[in-house]
Computed example of a mutant assay.
Amino acid sequence: MSPILLAEQILNGLQSGVMLFLMAAGLTLIFGVMGLINLAHGSLYMVGAFAAAAVAGATGSFLLALIAALAAAAAAGAMVELLVIRRLYARDHLDQVLATFALILIFSEGTRWLFGSFPLYLDIPPWLAGTVMLPGGIEYAAYRLALIGAGLAVAAGLWWMNARTRLGIQIRAGENDREMIAALGVDISKLYTLVFAIGAALAGLAGALVGPIQSVQIGMGEPVLILAFVVIVIGGIGSVRGALVGGLLVGLTDTLGRLLLPELFKLVTDASGAATIGSAFASMAIYILMAGVLIWKPTGLFGARA
């Protein structure tokens, strides 16, 4: 195996990881502040992707498509919180799971009614097309490199919001004692709506950014949602820093596992068997990682409480 191929796969793992972070960051914010299990988070990822594809197709502008994805996902999230989620905070987690699962079906059928059943396609913008020559002779797609930069920039922005702004203080306080901040005069209902909209916007942004490297289709958010839950369990529920570290770990583990495990099994079996066994173990690698983290630290890497 060449060092260049390994370096490219590491970059692919980083790119996958930062996109998972965008999904997981919104999910962990919502769960940390509201204690809500939101299975419909993947549907907001899909909403952002479809909004971006529709606007890009109509205007030809990728930047307008990203703005539309953020706005559509945030608006959808705020509407869902106001109309449905607000009635679930005091309910059992099973009620939350059933209600948000119903939202998945509603979003899927609503999107099918608006856009049809066929996939949409979002083109890579011309100014990010082609490849970039990196040190060491590594030729890598400019768009994927931009995704890594965008994800890290969002991570820095979330850190700044959480650590340096009044909203961040309220979010951190809400994670620890929501009754107390309500007693101090913070409108907890508005805070919940805003946090839900921010989480939804992050999911929509992830969907829009991934759109050019995969088809935009009904149900595209559900597989990513499963990985996002793995990320927040590894990183620690409620921790944005944990979501970033967990996303990078999951992205690298999944990508490098698919590359290295078949090669490893070639040492003990034939090429055909190594490919089959290696692929099977690679698909299990992130769950083995999650189990290992939970055995070592049940609250996750940066979780303050279970």
Rank of each mutant, 00 (worst) to 15 (best):
L122N: 12
E109R: 10
L63E: 14
A228C: 03
L114H: 05
L94R: 08
F31D: 07
G238T: 14
I148R: 05
L191C: 00
A102F: 11
A52R: 06
A228T: 04
A141M: 14
L20F: 04
A271M: 14
A153P: 08
L264W: 03
I124R: 05
P3D: 13
A153H: 07
I10D: 04
S279H: 12
A40Q: 02
A52I: 05
M23Q: 10
I106N: 04
L256T: 09
L103W: 09
G17Q: 00
I124V: 12
G235P: 08
V250A: 01
A69I: 09
A200G: 04
R172N: 00
F115W: 11
D95S: 14
V84I: 14
N12E: 07
F115C: 08
A99P: 01
A291H: 14
L252S: 01
F21L: 15
Q170H: 13
E179I: 15
G42S: 09
S239G: 14
A49P: 06
E263A: 06
G300F: 02
G32Q: 09
V231K: 01
M79H: 15
V18W: 02
F50E: 06
L64M: 14
M23H: 06
A208D: 02
E179W: 11
I198E: 06
G136W: 12
L294C: 12
L88Q: 05
V84N: 10
A72N: 02
G303A: 04
G137M: 09
A201P: 00
R241A: 11
I198C: 05
L11W: 03
A102T: 04
G199I: 00
A129T: 14
A203T: 14
A228W: 03
A141S: 13
A58Q: 14
D254T: 03
P262D: 07
G57H: 13
P125M: 04
A306K: 00
L264R: 01
I295W: 13
R112V: 12
I171A: 01
N38V: 02
L289A: 01
T28E: 00
L205C: 07
E81M: 03
G238P: 09
A200S: 08
G136I: 10
N12M: 05
V33Q: 11
L83C: 07
K190R: 13
G207T: 07
G204S: 08
V132T: 10
G157C: 05
E179H: 15
A75G: 09
P125R: 01
L225M: 09
F62L: 11
R144V: 04
W113F: 14
A68G: 06
A40P: 03
A40V: 01
A183G: 15
L209Y: 10
G116N: 12
T131R: 15
I85G: 06
A182H: 13
L88V: 06
A75N: 07
V245P: 02
L256Y: 11
I37H: 00
Q9K: 15
G246Q: 11
M79S: 13
I124K: 10
V210D: 13
A69M: 04
V224N: 03
L194Q: 06
I67H: 09
G168P: 03
Y140F: 12
T111Y: 02
R178Y: 14
G116R: 06
L103R: 04
L63Q: 15
L301Q: 05
L158H: 05
Q96P: 03
G242Q: 07
A291C: 15
K190G: 11
Q217C: 06
I67C: 05
I10T: 08
P262F: 02
S215K: 13
